[in-house]
């Protein structure tokens, strides 16, 4: 088997994510604090993988002709793939994914994932940048609301693809 075609491993965690492990403490946080950033690259193969894992086989996520016939410029990522990938930043920061007690978003803009022009279909053709900030601290319930900014980066252009993307984390 060609090495290029093997399953792409996610990029190594960035330092802010690597601090995970110990539960987050209430008294160490303040509103506006950045909890970390993460870059997610998506390839056409990632969309096929998400379709298989989720059971969402809508052809707008893998068939160019069909996507164009329904009025899209081309194949787009599943909104739930973007939402699912973005929260990884929060689960690592929280130390335990079970501490994420609420997670919501609105899908405001599609994420086009063109077929790679040449080489492996695993080659990423879309880049997302995710930043997490403490949006609100709830003293009574000991929770922090993490507000996620999720942007599609295309050269110098950035556009928000999710809005009101918020995760609530239980703190110790």
């Amino acid at each position: 088997m060609n090495d290029d075609l093997q399953v792409r491993r996610p990029a190594p965690l960035q330092p802010a994510e690597r601090q995970a492990g110990s539960p987050r403490r209430w008294d160490q946080l303040h509103k506006g604090q950045v909890i970390g950033t993460r870059t997610i690259e998506l390839s056409r193969a990632d969309l096929i993988r998400y379709a298989a894992a989720s059971g969402d086989h809508n052809p707008i996520h893998w068939n160019q002709r069909f996507a164009q016939e329904v009025g899209l410029e081309g194949v787009i990522a599943h909104g739930m793939l973007t939402m699912g990938a973005a929260v990884g930043l929060v689960t690592h920061w929280a130390g335990d994914p079970a501490k994420v007690t609420d997670y919501q978003t609105r899908f405001s803009k599609p994420v086009p994932v063109p077929d790679a022009a040449h080489g492996s279909p695993e080659a990423p053709t879309a880049t997302l940048e995710i930043t997490g900030k403490v949006g609100k601290l709830d003293e009574e319930n000991r929770t922090a609301r993490i507000d996620l900014t999720v942007e599609l980066v295309d050269g110098d252009e950035r556009s928000k693809v999710l809005t009101k993307c918020q995760a609530v984390v239980a703190l110790s």
């Binding site: 995970a20 990938a85 690592h92």
Partner: peptide, 15 residues
């Protein structure tokens, strides 16, 4: 199913 889904959304948390 959990492992496959976690890999698909690039969720690397060991749990």
């Amino acid at each position: 199913e959990i492992r496959e889904f976690a890999t698909a959304v690039k969720a690397e948390h060991r749990a």
